[in-house]
Amino acid sequence: MDDSILFNKIQDGDMTAFYQVYMSYWPLLYSHAVRMLRDEEEAKDIVQDLFIYAWENRSKIHFEKIKPFLYVSLRNRVINQSLRNKVEQKYLKRTFPVHNFDEYLHVEEDILYKELEAEIEKGIEALPPKMQAIFRMSRVENLSHKEIAEQLKVTTDNVKKTINRALKIIRSGMTKIIFTFFLFFMST
Rank of each mutant, 00 (worst) to 15 (best):
R35C: 11
M36C: 06
L29M: 12
L29D: 06
W26H: 11
A54Y: 15
I46P: 01
L29K: 04
V47L: 06
V47M: 07
V34L: 11
A43T: 05
Y25G: 00
E56M: 11
V34T: 02
L50T: 05
L28E: 12
E42A: 10
V47R: 06
L50V: 08
K60E: 01
R58N: 07
I52H: 06
W55S: 06
E40D: 14
Y30K: 11
N57M: 13
I52Y: 10
F51S: 01
V47S: 01
R35T: 12
D39S: 07
L29Q: 03
L50D: 09
I61R: 08
H62V: 12
V47P: 07
Y53D: 00
S59P: 01
V34H: 02
N57Q: 09
S31G: 10
V47T: 12
A43M: 10
L37Y: 07
P27Q: 07
R35I: 12
E41N: 13
E56Q: 10
E42Y: 14
I61T: 05
I52Q: 02
F63E: 06
L29R: 09
M36H: 07
Y30C: 00
M23G: 00
M36E: 00
S59H: 10
M36I: 03
F51K: 09
E41S: 08
E41A: 14
M36N: 02
V47E: 05
S24E: 15
E40W: 06
K60W: 13
L28H: 12
Y53A: 02
R58M: 11
I61Y: 11
L28K: 12
E64N: 00
P27A: 02
A43E: 04
W26R: 11
S24I: 15
E41T: 09
R58I: 06
F63V: 15
I46F: 05
A43P: 03
F51C: 00
H62C: 04
W55C: 05
R58F: 11
